[in-house]
Amino acid sequence: MATERKKAKKNSRFWEVMRRLRKNRLAMAGLVFLLLMILISIFAPLIAPYGYETQDLYNMFALPSAEHPFGTDNLGRDIFSRIIYGGRASLTIGFASVAVSAVFGMTLGAIAGYYGGKVDMVIMRVLDVFQAVPAILMSIAISATLGPGLVNAILAIGLSTIPGYSRMTRASFMSVQGMEYIEAARAIHCGDRRIMLKHVLPNAVSPMIVQMTMGVGSCISVAAMLSFIGLGVQPPSPEWGAMLSAGRNYIRDYWHIVLFPGLAIMLTVLSLNMLGDGLRDALDPRLKN
């Protein structure tokens, strides 16, 4: 009985949020589409009608047809299959770079917000410098230094978006700092780490979840942009931005080569944004009257 009640209590907030989220049709549409994209990427070899490097040399620049739903590209490769495989790279970069920046950013922000004083000042001044360079430009610079490739793209995008997460975490840590339950935790002699992780973090986490959801979307689009200008993931790898970059020379006569990869990016980012909006309303109902 006692354990049951404890369990129910632990999960109640999660289910409460889910219940509110379920009512939001836009957010649910986003969530469903996102899960669909993830499944498609995982099972790409089973779903894609062709391999991502399979060339059909009799059918170069083919317009969309029953055989090739999105047409073929300049090398006769099926664009539909390449988009399906491309989801792997794009989604990996999106989620991994958010993980990188959230872990570093939240740690820095938590330390700065919790300890305050000199530590806070040093961290914030360093972040000021980071923020003086626009994030996209920063990822271009880091990416140019590290060279092309999937992992380097993740690092470049992840590192360049750290300051946003730090500032947010710091602000929420500072705002719960004076609360009575923190004082209570301190009174029963909790260590700093325990207070940070168990008492402050759960109360500071809601805005982070929203920020991270939307962050995945913007990271995907930055990654596409990086490969578009010749950094990040390079052709012939199937990546949405790299596909656009390879197809742009043929845009005048073969519009389908650039239309579909762009649509894939747009719909994925859109679904993440819709989910993020929904999460924000669900996590903080006060904002929505």
């Binding site: 979307g217 942009m225 931005g241 656009l244 845009i251 650039v258 990016i265 747009m266 980012v269 859109l270």
Partner: peptide, 17 residues
């Protein structure tokens, strides 16, 4: 939402097309 979600360089390509 659409505006925020569309990658700018792709919009550029489409507009120029």
């Amino acid at each position: 939402l659409l505006g925020v979600s569309m990658p700018g360089f792709w919009v550029g390509l489409m507009l120029s097309l």
